[in-house]
Design a protein around this nucleic acid. Structure first.
Lengths: 231, 231
DNA sequence: CATATGCTCAATAGATTACTTGATCAAGGC
DNA sequence: GCCTTGATCAAGTAATCTATTGAGCATATG
């Protein structure tokens, strides 16, 4: 019960427990590893693809993945000479989303950083997932996935068309000229949909942005079309 | 759009955004600071109280609180010679809960650590919040808050009686002799309810444990009686 | 078997973090 | 004003973390 021995045991118990949880938070305590988690929330990737995506060297990316793997946040699968990494548990996305939600509430710097980037492109209208479903039901809008084709194929919003942002300028003809386009990409801090809206605007089209990305849509329990999830 | 200049800007934007979020994860990347957050989830505390609770020196605790404060996870309030710290946002609890949920799913070590501690005390039955509400409605059980009195006063489960675990042995007479006691404390890794159950068992009483603590109860949107929340 | 590709590992230097100690500061009581 | 209490600050050491470099390993191909 509560003699000295038990008190010491209780302290050792707490130390051990918090040490275990700190393994997770330590693994996430790096901007590079947070970005890796954010990208992996879209689906599995090779080390090389991840390195290019986050703008780090191959060796450095491999080592960051190693520390994520040691904390069991990601898993690896070998396929020939390629090693594909994926999130080990959907709950990893929940942790990242909780951190993001906190940051959005607490850190005004993020708002300013976003505003500084958007300063180039101008403020674009964004809609919520509920808005989108209402407007889709009314047939008012065209839903556009501007992520790379592979990500679209790995899963996308029901009824979305795929035109990667890099091909949008050439493939504008595929979109009905007078429809409002709702563009989405990976998440609230993914710039692809902003870039897409700038292209649409430069060609006289009307476009708005879905505030969240595919992982957020999925996390809200909404249906996803195609693809095989993320393990 | 996507000429080289914009690409560089996009990279700088991402770097800045992930850097901001990493401020949060870095602040949580320490077992001591995780424990501080866990304790502060119960309500505000002085530096001295926190230092004793987490078993660290005053200076070290103060410095850990400083880094939590810089990341805006906690706020401080001076009252005479005392400084009271509290969580800056309820969303901080959500992050901690998400980390805990991930750890419970991923890290078998935690199970083993818990089992090792409970090995002393024997496996005790635990009930969920839903179980509890059903059994309370049936009048089968007595709900007992075994946390320190100050925490009980800062907020407790509706209908709970307060007997801090340190006083339980002397105050057993206050409990109806043949009722089943449901004991709860701060959370799933708080040892007070385990200690309380051991005392009850040693005196021939029947007791079970509520699996979660007050912050979890509150986070689930269930009503809390008394107290003023946690800012 | 030799070679190329995709990735991991080991060694290193520079930066950051953790805890201790002793000094300092702020507020209240005498 | 002086002393006490509660907390912060500054300095120092040990430990840990980050990114780079170059070597090494596994798998596939000619």
């Amino acid at each position: 019960m509560s003699h000295d021995g038990a008190t010491l045991t209780a302290r050792a118990f707490k130390d051990a427990v918090y040490e275990q949880f700190a393994r997770i938070t330590k693994a996430l305590a790096s901007p590079v590893r947070l970005e890796l988690v954010d990208v992996l929330a879209q689906g599995e990737r090779t080390v090389d693809a991840l390195a290019r995506e986050v703008g780090q060297s191959l060796a450095n990316t491999s080592q960051h993945l190693r520390s994520l793997k040691e904390a069991r946040l990601v898993e690896a699968r070998r396929d020939g000479t390629f090693v594909h990494y994926r999130l080990a548990d959907p709950q990893v996305i929940e942790v990242w989303r909780a951190v993001r939600a906190l940051g959005e509430r607490q850190l005004a710097e993020i708002e300013r950083t976003v505003a500084a980037y958007l300063g180039d492109a101008g403020g674009f209208e964004s809609v919520t997932a509920d808005d989108l479903q209402r407007r889709l039901a009314d047939g008012e809008v065209v839903l556009l996935d501007v992520r790379p084709d592979a990500e679209y194929r790995a899963g996308h919003l029901p009824g979305a068309r795929s035109i990667p942002v890099g091909e949008l300028a050439e493939r504008l003809a595929e979109l009905p000229p007078d429809a409002t386009v709702v563009a989405y990409c990976r998440g609230p801090y993914c710039v692809m949909s902003y870039d897409a809206l700038a292209i649409l605007r430069d060609h006289g089209r009307r476009g708005v942005r879905l505030a969240e990305g595919l992982p957020d849509w999925r996390a809200a329990g909404r249906p996803v079309q195609g693809g095989h999830g993320l393990g």
